[in-house]
């Protein structure tokens, strides 16, 4: 079966080569355009951020505003640990308040006696 395979270069017409070459160029061009657009979006977004920071006086000439993912993760972890620690440093004030109503069935003596034992004694 394999011996019957024929390689015929005449099957490749000018149209086919055009399809291949133009097709590849279009694919490349589409992704190059996306590359340029996505490269410029962060710059556009940062213009607004820079202006805000300058107005607030937080930086004169704000350099690279990008934060790497691992830096973000480190900040998040530090915040988490701080807040977790902060929870342990509470005022120690017990917030249970005495209520004005004195009687409650929970503290009633009558309910604390066990009738079952009495029955047994008989």
């Amino acid at each position: 079966m394999l011996s019957e395979i024929q390689f015929d270069l005449s099957n490749v017409s000018g149209f086919s080569i055009t399809v291949a070459v133009v097709g590849y160029i279009i694919v490349f061009a589409a992704l190059v355009m996306l590359f340029f657009i996505y490269s410029s979006i962060p710059k556009l977004i940062n213009i607004n951020v820079r202006q805000k920071l300058k107005r607030q006086g937080k930086c004169e000439d704000c350099g690279d505003l990008h934060i790497e993912g691992d830096v973000n993760a480190a900040i998040s972890m530090a915040l988490y640990l701080y807040l977790d620690e902060a929870h342990d440093e509470e005022s120690d004030v017990i917030t249970i308040k005495r209520i004005s109503k004195q009687y409650t069935p929970w503290s009633s003596k009558i309910y604390s006696t066990n009738t079952y034992f009495r029955t047994l004694r008989r």
């Binding site: 395979i5 024929q6 390689f7 015929d8 270069l9 099957n11 490749v12 086919s16 080569i17 399809v19 291949a20 070459v21 097709g23 590849y24 694919v27 490349f28």
Partner: peptide
């Protein structure tokens, strides 16, 4: 994606 277009030519030859 070059693989797509080279195979296209290869398939035509075959």
């Amino acid at each position: 994606q070059v693989g797509i277009f080279i195979t296209f030519i290869g398939a035509l030859i075959l």
